[in-house]
């Protein structure tokens, strides 16, 4: 929530604080997943596998509203806004640049909150299938959610037939973000 809080903090302390940001956010994705209709009907192993593969991508969608592409700032959960230049000191420059680019593309689609939530559900169940036991069940769940998302978007914007395909094109973007950046290192202090 608070990656930077004054010049008296060492870069190590800032890095620890930034790493800690992800813990509550990941837990919220797990709770979000449990609320997706049909998700808890999958086997526990498949639920865990989808969450392990897809949580980073869901977080990228969730966090993109915190990125202001116009003035190149990021707003953290404590409500404070930091310029990209300050955050580069954390060493996450390439991830932040990719996030700005992604948030610009997704932001331009102008999704309502419920559309965004349904899109996040699609992102999660569209994650990598390695290790999934019941492929058919996961595919059925994915198809149902994609149908619901298409229906919601088309009902609300019957004159815009390009929005839904453009939204689906963000899925490969998220996979690329995941492949390039999920191996970034975090540091947690052991007391």
């Amino acid at each position: 929530a608070c990656p930077v809080s004054g010049a008296d903090r060492s870069s190590q302390e800032i890095w620890e604080s930034f790493s800690q940001c992800f813990t509550p956010a990941v837990k919220e994705v797990v709770e979000f997943a449990k609320g997706i209709p049909g998700f808890q009907e999958l086997s526990q192993q498949d639920q865990v596998m989808l969450l392990k593969s897809g949580t980073f991508q869901v977080l990228m969608v969730r966090f993109c509203t915190l990125f202001n592409a116009e003035d190149r700032t990021v707003t953290f959960l404590n409500g404070k806004t930091y310029p990209l230049s300050t955050l580069r000191a954390l060493g996450m420059g390439s991830l932040l640049d990719a996030m700005f680019e992604f948030s610009e593309k997704l932001g331009s689609l102008g999704l309502e909150p419920d559309e965004m939530a349904l899109f996040m559900a699609v992102v999660l169940v569209s994650a990598d299938r390695s290790g999934i036991l019941d492929m058919w069940a996961v595919e059925q769940l994915q198809e149902g959610l994609i149908r619901a998302l298409r229906s919601l978007i088309n009902r609300r914007r019957p004159d815009d037939t390009t929005l839904f395909p453009k939204l689906l094109l963000r899925l490969p973007d998220l996979r690329t973000l995941n492949n390039f950046h999920s191996e970034k290192l975090l540091a947690f202090r052991i007391d």
């Binding site: 992800f22 980073f56 290192l185 947690f188």
Partner: peptide, 25 residues
């Protein structure tokens, strides 16, 4: 002198998820 556990974001996510499911079993 501080000791740190260093892990990738992917491993950290995995760890939280495994913990959560184990806790709720």
């Amino acid at each position: 002198h501080k000791t740190h556990r260093v892990m990738t974001l992917a491993d950290h996510i995995s760890h939280i998820i495994t913990q959560d499911f184990a806790r709720n079993q």
